[in-house]
Every structure is written in structure tokens, then in C-alpha cells.
């Protein structure tokens, strides 16, 4: 059973690899990732692809909006990590 903190750390690892030029240590959980980092729709696809590759987690296209902020990521992904 992964805690929310651990889920957050795994998501952060992925984001750090994608947003190469950004400092991810100061991400605010409530604020949209797009507003804090240099991420566009192509990069969100990469977050989805990395979740599948590293953790075998599938995110259907209609759920992409659930990855908008760190908070919504953790809420949406925690049950999937622990499934």
C-alpha cells in the first residue's frame, strides 16, 4: 500500500524527467502544473506514457484532465497504484 506521499514522489520523478529545465522541488500541489512548469499537451502525453511504462498504469484520454495539478494527480492515481 503506497501512501499519498509515495505516490506523489513517483509522479514527481516522472515530471522531473520530462520538464528537464524546470525546478520541480517547489511545485505547489493545488496549482495547475501547466501554470508552474514549462509543460504543454505533448508533455502531458509523456506523463501518461511514463505511467504506463514505469508503473503499468493506464490513463484513458478522457481522464487526462485529472492530471492537471499534483493534488488531482495523487487523488486520481493513488487507487491505481494500489489496485
Amino acid at each position: 500500500m503506497l501512501s499519498n506521499e509515495e505516490v506523489r514522489a513517483k509522479v514527481l520523478d516522472i515530471i522531473a524527467d520530462i520538464a528537464l529545465d524546470d525546478d520541480v522541488s517547489s511545485i505547489k500541489d493545488e496549482v495547475a502544473l501547466r501554470d508552474q512548469l514549462d509543460l504543454d499537451s505533448m508533455d502531458f502525453l509523456d506523463i501518461v506514457m511514463e505511467l504506463k511504462k514505469r508503473h503499468k498504469i493506464e490513463v484513458p484520454q478522457e481522464d487526462y484532465t485529472k492530471l492537471a495539478s499534483m493534488k488531482s494527480c495523487v487523488e486520481y492515481l493513488a487507487p491505481k497504484f494500489n489496485a
Binding site: I18, A19, D21, D38, M42, D43
Partner: peptide, 12 residues
């Protein structure tokens, strides 16, 4: 420079 097309491609 940040967020320019070439940056984005290389990031991908």
C-alpha cells in the same frame, strides 16, 4: 531560452 519549438522537440 524556454518554451520555444526547438526546446520542446528536444525535450520530447
Amino acid at each position: 531560452d524556454r518554451g520555444k519549438p526547438f526546446n520542446k522537440l528536444m525535450k520530447q
